[in-house]
Design a protein around this nucleic acid. Structure first.
Length: 596
RNA sequence: GCCCCCGUAGCUCAGUGGAUAGAGCGACGGUUUCCUAAACCGUAGGUCGCAGGUUCGAUCCCUGCCGGGGGCACCA
């Protein structure tokens, strides 16, 4: 619409506009900052005025003169302020859009015009150690992005790049050989492997303050002063194909996998593929060889590295002096394999921001090494560190971290308390089994939401109290809005299919109806913005907006007691609200109870 | 020493070129003969770290400085 107007503007010789700057100018039509100014406003007149040799307001008037609002907007009035072109969506257009969206399975969200193949790499825990709170961000953000991109119409391939081949297995192997408890392993293999990992890690690191706090580890460290080196030896033996270590690895892997699968099930997280580091192990020697052959990598101080920025800057090491490969080697092998087998347009890595330099180096190396790498966008979707209440990083290696499962349990337990209290006060007498189900959805939803709602680039202060708060900007607020929608349909015995059929268009006489309708129809914009910079918090902000608009609407206007077309129209708004919130939460990986 | 990220209301954080900078929590004050008050409405609270620059316009872009965090060859 504006494109056509600007085209006519150029054709009429008012101002020259190059075709490539058109998208930028059209981007200058956006949601108005203040509802009093209308629904959307265009600001391109100010940008173009100088070049046109006109006052911004006069140029805005020229644009308005050439604007065909196509029945969607009220004809714009005079330019406002320095040259804003304010637009208000026509009520009848808004009403028709609501009627169309309410019976559209995609809720008015058109699939992208040019679908891409996108590989999404997220979660990627080290399977030898228990999952803890530090794993939640990559897992939850990655899974949400996967669902959103898929819904947008892309071909999404999710891949869990498991850490199943590194030094942490050397620790378990060493522990198994020196201090295993067979009875404990028989009873609970996961717990025993976890114990071994934590114990050996302390002994191998031999940090005085840690050992002082753990007499058992200290005694072991005293007997095995060379533990650190021996652990690396065990790792190297595994990598070289030593039969004993290989057999133990085969024995441990299913145990470790079962453990993380249980947590994924509880988080509603899944993957199309789980190709861990071990999968690429047979290709690593070839990777180093290739890099050397094309002159990218060379030997230095016994190791082999890729020197990207001259000899002064640290290289990207792909082989250690002892012959072992590093995670850079694996990452490069992974990129090559993915490009070859999946031919993606984009590969997204949802990984801690502390690894940004690593990814810069790996991506740059891949681009120089693999000709087809330049056709794919390699993107590090970085997120901030999970901090404790004290503001210090939640380090796996620090010892006493919160286990992920214990965290989920606590969230659910707190939610159960709230559900039970609310139920008692209200006298709804929900059976305990239902209250447990609701608590699971609300508790885990709260934890996921707290993570997703924050801009991923900033550090994330983990706090039970904050994430389990069930009021305000939380999953529970949205879930509650849906429950109130359901309440209306249940109470009124209303047939939703009939409402969808019969709705000819919402009557939008009240500003609160109008605000809700407008918010509901911006779903597609929100999802588009999420994709633009891989930020799920754009979607949480949007859903919070919708839920807020609905709460205001719900509080002020009767639905079931309304009559005729107005009743149908309000029911349609309720129905669409329920559908948008449900779909939005589903895309974030958050369950929605029928009532709460 | 080099590189990256962050400094916005008492607290936790959105917003990243546009009109009077927003939300949640906390504080204070209102709303329930009415579809779930886990709600709604209102009030108070800000030199957007500091200083320059670019721009018609800067919290947002550039430069410098101050403060905080992180990373910088054989862990991942």
């Amino acid at each position: 619409m504006f494109g056509a107007a600007l085209g006519r503007l150029a054709a009429d010789g008012v101002v020259a506009i190059a075709p490539e700057e058109l998208p930028g100018l059209l981007d200058q039509v956006r949601e108005a900052a203040d509802a009093r100014h209308g629904d959307y406003s265009g600001t391109m007149a100010m940008a173009l005025a100088k070049r046109a040799g006109k006052k911004p307001r006069d140029l805005a008037a020229e644009i308005i003169r050439r604007l065909d609002v196509e029945g969607l907007f009220e004809p714009p009035g005079e330019p406002v302020g320095p040259g804003f072109i304010n637009l208000r969506v026509r009520d009848d257009a808004l009403a028709r859009a609501v009627a169309a969206a309410v019976r559209d399975p995609r809720l008015g969200v058109a699939p992208v015009a040019a679908p891409q193949t996108i590989v999404l790499d997220y979660s990627s825990p080290n399977v030898a150690k228990p999952m803890h709170v530090g794993h939640i961000r990559s897992t939850v953000i990655g899974a949400a992005l996967a669902r959103i991109l898929k819904f947008r119409g892309h071909r999404v391939i999710t891949d869990n790049h498991l850490g199943d081949w590194g030094t942490q297995f050397g620790m378990i192997l060493w522990g198994w050989k020196h201090c295993r408890d067979d009875a404990a392993f028989a009873a609970d293999p996961t717990a025993e492997l976890g114990r071994l990992y934590r114990l050996v890690r302390k002994v191998a690191d031999a940090k005085p303050e840690e050992l002082a706090a753990d007499p058992g580890a200290a005694a072991l460290a005293a007997r095995h002063p060379d533990c650190g080196r021996e652990v690396l030896l065990e790792t190297a033996k595994l990598h070289e194909g030593d039969p004993e270590n290989r057999a133990l690895w085969e024995q441990f892997m299913p145990v470790c996998r079962r453990e993380i699968e249980r947590i994924y099930a509880r988080l509603d997280v899944s993957f199309d593929h789980t190709l861990g580091e071990s999968f690429y192990q047979p290709m690593l020697a070839g990777v180093v060889h290739d890099l050397e052959a094309v002159g990218l990598a060379r030997e230095s101080r016994g190791a082999v590295g890729v020197f990207l920025d001259g000899d002064d800057k640290p290289p990207l090491l792909v082989r250690k002096a002892d012959g072992a490969f590093l995670y850079a080697t694996t990452d490069l092998a992974t990129i090559r394999w993915r490009l070859e087998h999946w031919k993606p347009d984009r590969i997204l890595y949802v990984v801690d921001h502390r690894q940004s330099q690593h990814f810069e180096q790996v991506f740059e190396t891949a681009r120089r090494w693999l000709p087809n790498a330049s056709h794919a966008a390699l993107v590090h979707v970085a997120f901030g560190t999970v901090l404790g209440d004290d503001g210090k990083p939640f380090k796996t290696r620090a010892g006493d971290t919160v286990g992920l499962e214990a965290l989920l349990d606590e969230g659910v337990a707190r939610a159960f308390q709230v559900v039970t209290t609310a139920d008692a006060e209200r006298g709804t007498e929900m059976p305990e089994a239902e209250r447990r189900r609701i608590a699971e959805a609300v508790g885990i939803g709260a934890i996921k939401y707290a993570d997703l709602a924050q801009n991923r680039t900033t550090d994330y202060v983990f706090s039970f109290d904050k994430m389990l708060e069930l009021k305000g900007n939380t999953a529970a607020y949205m879930q509650y809005a849906v429950a109130r929608v359901e309440g209306i349909f249940a109470k009124g015995g209303v047939d939703r299919a009939q409402v969808r059929r019969e709705c000819r268009g919402a009557t939008l006489s009240d500003r609160r109806e109008r605000a809700l309708a407008l918010a509901l129809l911006r779903f597609a914009e929100a999802l588009e913005d999420v994709e633009a910079d891989e930020r799920p918090n754009v979607l949480t902000a949007y859903l919070f907006d919708v839920a807020g608009a609905y709460s205001t609407f719900y509080d002020a206007l009767p639905v079931l007691k309304a009559e005729g077309a107005e009743r149908t129209a309000r029911l349609a708004l309720c129905d669409l609200t329920g559908q948008v919130l449900r779909r939005g939460l589903e895309l974030l990986g958050i369950r929605v109870p029928e009532r709460m």
